[in-house]
Structure formats: C-alpha cells, structure tokens
Amino acid sequence: MSRDPSEPVIETRDLSKVFGRFTAVDRVSFSIRRGEIFGFLGPNGAGKSTTIRMLCGLLSSSSGTAQVNGHDINREPELIREAIGYMSQKFSLYRDLTVAENIAFFGGIYGLQGARLRDRTATVMTLAGLTGQENHLTGTLSGALQQRLALGCAILHEPPILFLDEPTSGVDPVSRREFWDLIRGLSARGITILVTTHFMDEAEFCDRLGFINAGRLIALDTPARIKTTTGSATLEAAFIKLAT
C-alpha cells in the first residue's frame, strides 16, 4: 500500500447513531492520519464506544459517513475487518484456553498459518512479555498480563489500524504506564491507533484528542493546544470548561 502519508486513514463526516429516541453519537466528524495516536476522551456513556463499534463494523450507523483504510463502513465492512485490530476493556480472551491456544485461535480466524503464524506468535509473546508462559491457562494470568495478551491477539495479523476501547480499565497504574509504552512503540512503527479512555493522564500520551460529551464532539486538537485555547492548566480542567 503506497499511500500519501498525510492522507487520512480514518475519516468520519456527521457520523451519528440513534437508539430509539436516544442519540448516542451526534454528527461526529474527524479524521486521523497514518501513525497517529488519536484519543477519544469523555465520561462513560458519552458515545466513545459506540463510535468505535461503528468504525469496526460491529454496529451499523444511523446517518453520516465514515471510511476506514479507504473503505466505507457500511459498504465494505469485510475489507475493513482485514485491516483492523480491536481490543476492548473486557480482554475478550478464552480464559479456559492456554496462552498459546488463544494466540493460535485468533491467528486462525485471521487466516494465519504455518511459518507466518509461528513468526507472529513469537513476536507477540515477546511483546506481551509472556515468553515461557505459553502453557498457562489464560484465566490464571494477572489482569495486566491478560491485557497484554489481548493486545497481542489484536495485532497478530499486523493490522495497519488498531482500535482500543478502554484498554486500561481495571489495570494498576504501573501496568498502565507500561501498556502505553507498548502503544507508542506500535505507533512508531506506523500503526494508526484510535484509543478511548476516561483517564486524563493517559490523554497526555495521545498525539491528538477528541473530547466527546453527550454524543457530541466538543473539541478536537492536540493536548497542548486544547489546554492553551481553554486557558487551563490540566486537560481535566479544560474538559470541564468545554463541557459546561
């Protein structure tokens, strides 16, 4: 794929999702460049997960358009699925399978096999810091290790785009910090990352932020510029100013 690096990898225009009479996502427009870490920030129920789920093809959109890796989310969801990795806050692994079996399974459903699967397995095991624990049952691992394994499973097929939905909830601060090191490493290799969080300290690690509140995008800029334009010392203060 030889594309202009400045060309947006993810782009939405007036993307909306309505559940009955409740508008979960209200005309959200943004674009994300290749290799960028884009943070979606906002309180629970603001519409962060709903937006990600529409971009992943898990949820249909009500109106507006969105493209992921050049493919329309409603017309070519299957092509998008090849190009994305997805990890949610639930670390959706099989707790009754071993580490190696989980990796083999997720590799399998992405069609990986043979040398490539072995190669990717080794890479992911190193990245997740799980080498030597291949035969441990996943359910017996600590929360932080499960989180790393979930991330590893999401990038087995080397997707150019990674969606992380609240990936650090339920993990201790030190592990959260280490996890963000992993994410920055992936970004440095050109992977585009869309991450949602409600931790303001994590937002500082993002290249650009979208503040979302009650389904609306209320700010879209770099962390530094958001703070300057609102005249706030912290992102938290900026958010409160913008949201009220």
């Binding site: 992943c56 093809g57 898990l58 699925r81 090849e82 959706s92 692994l93 997720f106 459903i109 992405y110």
Partner: peptide, 13 residues
Amino acid sequence: ERETMEQIMVSPI
C-alpha cells in the same frame, strides 16, 4: 456472555 463473540465478529470470519 463472555464477550468473546465480539472479538470473533471483528475478524474477517
């Protein structure tokens, strides 16, 4: 129930 279905659904299967 264990949300693993969602992880399968985002794959090209």
